[in-house]
Nucleic acid binder design. Structure first.
Lengths: 248, 248
DNA sequence: TAGCAAAATGTCAAAATGACACTAAGCAAA
DNA sequence: TTTGCTTAGTGTCATTTTGACATTTTGCTA
């Protein structure tokens, strides 16, 4: 799984991935802990990321690196942007790590960040390479990260929120069959506040992005919820077109 | 104006700028023509862009490069994203140019693109460095560009359109005093189709992003238009908050 | 069979949208 | 001085969308 000996490593460019998952309760983000170095005990979480190869596109690099560190693959990653501040690798604990992990630890490195939304239950992350552990952390618990990853993470959250306002969301985060309550919770988790249940359902139904199925929850100690699935046609159309504001 | 001997050039990372301007008629984009090399006569236009230095941030690099090539400065540039496809520098005419302009013409280079909207009349671009000429071209006339600049340009136009839908626009493209017809034309230029005049005015006024001034056009052979200015407070608030869809 | 828990549903007033056509003002030419 | 040209500016109405709000339904469990 280590390609370093077969490819020409680009020592000035890395990729980092912000992977959001949803467990029907909270919005979470996939983070790794790096294997400890020297006598540095501090162990900030980081986003999965690494240097790119010179013979791969940025998108491919993101896919590869994510796979190498967490074993997740075939995830639709969207680019968030490039981060290249001069001080992005300047925390003492990060410098120590770079010294023991990089051929040119002092090199200036810019990173291209990617983000994705996934159905948390459909993936089973496993740490490898320099990742000691991988875990899903509730987004609201993330207070600090290695490198400039907190900045990247915050940007990704903003982007997610911006996206939510102009197109439907959830296709990649929910199972094929889901309930409107689950979709509702997902939106609330991203928006960060309560949304009126009736108005939410009305909107989703009017936009025709969901189809009601002839199947209900079973074994729940309350009125069972109806299952829905996404109306793929309409969903995609709205992703492309965006919700209309003011006719344009 | 050539910093190359004072700074450490990063040979793997460049920046490119998509500068949109508006002349009250058409939406335009700032392009340069490179000084010709060898016996290559083909002269595709390009976006102003060049390699970055290792001691500057990406944002700074974009500002500097834009200044060096076109003499434009103090422009608020927003990042569009990174472009790093393996074949982005593979057109024959581009290879010839790289050979005569770059220390490592075969090097893999990714670029970080920026875009901005400016009041075309407030700037007077002047070519320098490897730019032979600089000009404003109507966006609809752009059919091909050097490198992968057409792809970058198209992405920038999409981004501009996306932006228009969720926040007010025009603050940087119009003079301090402007007429609602000018704003209307600007929107039509970006959206690419006609927008109902009355509904447009109603919306702008209701959003309170413009303030009516006590001043009219003079010397026009028709009913003079009233001048307006932006309501900075409300404008900024809406830029941050975005237009609401569905309460979130 | 009583109680619990979450699902599901409807109404109404207010605001926003979209479609649509005529009058007003200033200048220029006859 | 009158007529014509050109763009600015304005209002209405029917329809749709929003936002606020409370009760009933269903299935399970004790």
């Amino acid at each position: 799984m280590n390609y370093n000996y077969e490819h020409d490593l680009n020592k000035g460019i890395s990729v980092d991935c912000v992977i959001f998952g949803f467990d029907f309760e909270k919005l979470k983000v996939l983070v790794i802990r790096r294997k400890p170095v020297e006598n540095i005990s501090e162990s900030l979480v980081s986003l999965p990321g690494d240097l790119i190869f010179n013979d791969e596109n940025l998108d491919q690099a993101a896919q590869r690196v994510l796979k190498e560190l967490t074993d997740l693959e075939n995830i639709y990653l969207e680019q968030l942007g490039a981060f290249g501040d001069l001080d992005r690798l300047s925390k003492p604990s990060d410098i120590a790590w770079l010294r023991s992990n990089r051929a040119q630890p002092e090199a200036r490195v810019i990173t291209v960040a990617y983000y994705a939304l996934v159905n948390l239950n459909a993936f089973d992350p496993k740490p490898s390479n320099f990742a000691e552990s991988v875990s899903w952390e509730p987004v609201e618990d993330i207070k600090s990260m290695a490198f400039d990853h907190l900045e990247i993470f915050n940007k990704a959250r903003e982007e997610l929120y911006r996206k939510l306002k102009i197109q439907p969301i959830g296709f990649n985060l929910l199972p094929k069959k889901f309930t409107l309550s689950q979709l509702h919770k997902l939106y609330e988790a991203i928006v960060g506040r309560e949304l009126d249940k009736r108005n939410f359902r009305r909107k989703m139904i009017k936009l025709e992005i969901v189809k009601k199925l002839d199947e209900k929850q079973k074994g729940v100690p309350h009125k069972p919820s109806n299952f829905y699935e996404f109306h793929v046609e309409n969903y995609k159309r709205l992703v492309n077109k965006g919700f209309d504001n003011f006719g344009f």
